[in-house]
């Protein structure tokens, strides 16, 4: 590849609080995939959360305090990779809203947001890898997570990565762009609506006959997997990074 000179080697991983605490295996897959593409992954140890939970609940002052901290932890020049559309959107879009009347912080936001890439976006648009010579058998269907799709406009990247996995049959589900019903505290405040949305999503995914449902956000996966377990479905849930990790791992299994 001729662009190799411009391809960054060192990346900062913003793993997100959900992955850190609930889905560490997704974080490991992200590291594996990036390392196999020649990146050196660094994990700024000061990181915790981007502040989205407070922001979404209407507590903007608390969100601001946490967001300021995030901006400090991720200061620097290296690109930042995040395996989540939602946390990515928080930093790239909603920080602008949060700090709209603080010009100095806004400048920091722009600097950090300008270096922040969602995982699939980083692979395809920055590393220019949309075919990782990946191999895996089975069938999968892709759920377009809301913030990834609509806030960040990232859709072609994960789809092309999945399409490039040899042996993996992709099947499109009905209403794949419709929200799974998570929405943070929404899922707890309005459980009936949330569950009705979740059930539609799972029904559509299962109707494709695919064995795995792939998505790009751990929070959505947590919601979907929680539902699958309660319902007793056999559908498997995977983050895109897990699929790519498994499919590029030399010994055939994710490490």
């Amino acid at each position: 590849m001729t662009q190799s000179e411009q391809i960054p080697r060192r990346v900062l991983l913003f793993v997100t609080c959900t992955v850190d605490q609930l889905y560490p295996q997704i974080g490991e897959s992200v590291v594996n995939v990036l390392e196999r593409q020649g990146c050196e992954v660094d994990f700024p140890a000061g990181q915790t959360c981007c502040g989205q939970p407070a922001f979404n609940a209407g507590f903007t002052e608390d969100a601001k305090a946490v967001a300021r901290r995030f901006l400090d932890v991720f200061a620097g020049e290296d690109p930042i990779v995040v395996p989540s559309g939602s946390c990515g959107a928080m930093v790239r879009n909603f920080y602008l809203e949060l700090f709209h009347d603080e010009p100095e912080t806004l400048a920091k936001v722009r600097q950090v947001a300008g270096r922040l890439y969602e995982f699939s976006e980083f692979l395809v648009d920055v590393l220019h890898r949309d075919d990782l010579a990946a191999k895996m058998s089975g069938s999968a269907t892709y759920h377009q997570c809301c913030h990834l799709l609509r806030e960040l406009g990232i859709d072609a990247q994960p789809k092309s990565l999945l399409a490039s996995v040899e042996g993996l049959e992709m099947r499109e589900m009905e209403q794949s762009e419709v929200c799974c019903g998570f929405g943070g505290t929404f899922a707890v405040k309005f459980p009936e609506i949330s569950t009705a949305m979740l059930n539609d999503k799972l029904d559509y995914a299962i109707a494709t006959g695919a064995d795995t449902l792939v998505a790009g956000d751990a929070t959505c996966l947590m919601h979907l997997e929680g539902g699958v377990r309660k319902r007793g479905d056999t559908l498997q849930l995977k983050h895109l990074a897990q699929v790519l990790d498994e499919a590029t791992s030399t010994d055939g299994v994710a490490s």
């Binding site: 913030h147 609509r150 419709v178 929200c179 019903g181 929405g183 929404f186 405040k189 309005f190 609506i193």
Partner: peptide, 11 residues
């Protein structure tokens, strides 16, 4: 309740 009755999915 109304402003909270949204997942902020952006559709």
């Amino acid at each position: 309740d109304l402003p909270f009755a949204s997942t902020l999915c952006g559709a």
